[in-house]
Amino acid sequence: MEIEAETHPLDKYLRTDRIPHIWCPGCGLGTVLNCFLHALEESDIDLKNLAIVSGIGCTGRVAGYLNVDSYHTTHGRAIPFATGLKLANPKLKVVVFSGDGDLFAIGGNHFIHAARRNIDMTVICVNNYNYGMTGGQLGPTTPLEAKTTTSPYGNVEHPFNLCHVAAASGAVYVARWTALHVRRLKESMKEALNKKGFTFIEVIASCPTTYGRRNKMPTGLDTMRYYKEKSVIKHGIDPSEADIEIGGDIIVGKFVDIEKPTFDEILKKLEEKIK
């Protein structure tokens, strides 16, 4: 028999007085957050020095559920806020948790520049192909021809390949997983958390309510089964070859893992030089 429980061993990472979260049944966001909690549990991160920064949108709500210093900022501005936070207190481990629209449409400029500067932070982008919070509009990652409320006849825009953008902008760690790859995602999160520099993980996740229903995947389970069928792991592949198309393979894996001095390391050296 299963055992009925009241609490979860990872509850210590959560503001349990705010659980259940607002995310819909079948949404992949809870899974991604869950993997993150497991990653925290298995790393040596000092929670006192962990700060989570989110923007606006469904993923933006992550900050409010984690029982650490957490900042729910304005739409698109999580990364520059996090930049200030990290530079002002270098002891902090800063993690930006936000969505594809927040990080790559309204906040796209900040993303590429923070990656270019190699600010020491981990950015986790939950990519659900649309703006969920506002009811399912097209976003910068909506695949060509996909239906959304603002592309009712099918999307006519080419989507961003987020990992390609991240790698081209200078991120030192770039990986992509789906919400089904929970173990690999958790391992990737641990790697990113323990690596200095601008680290980026894209997690493709289900949004049954506003995206799936319009694109022949009415439940989260349908989407997760689709990931199982279509995902192909290709570590080390050039991310430019990992575009996402409707019906095509979803290429996942760790694409980039390089070393490069961070903004604060270079700044520290400069300060010593001019002293």
Partner: peptide, 24 residues
């Protein structure tokens, strides 16, 4: 101290809020 030239004013304002919460 830390000087950073941001990519625009939206980022500059967000960054000083972050820095203030970082204690500076």
């Amino acid at each position: 101290g830390i000087f950073i030239q941001m990519e625009d004013e939206l980022a500059s304002m967000a960054a000083i809020l972050g820095a203030s919460w970082g204690g500076m």
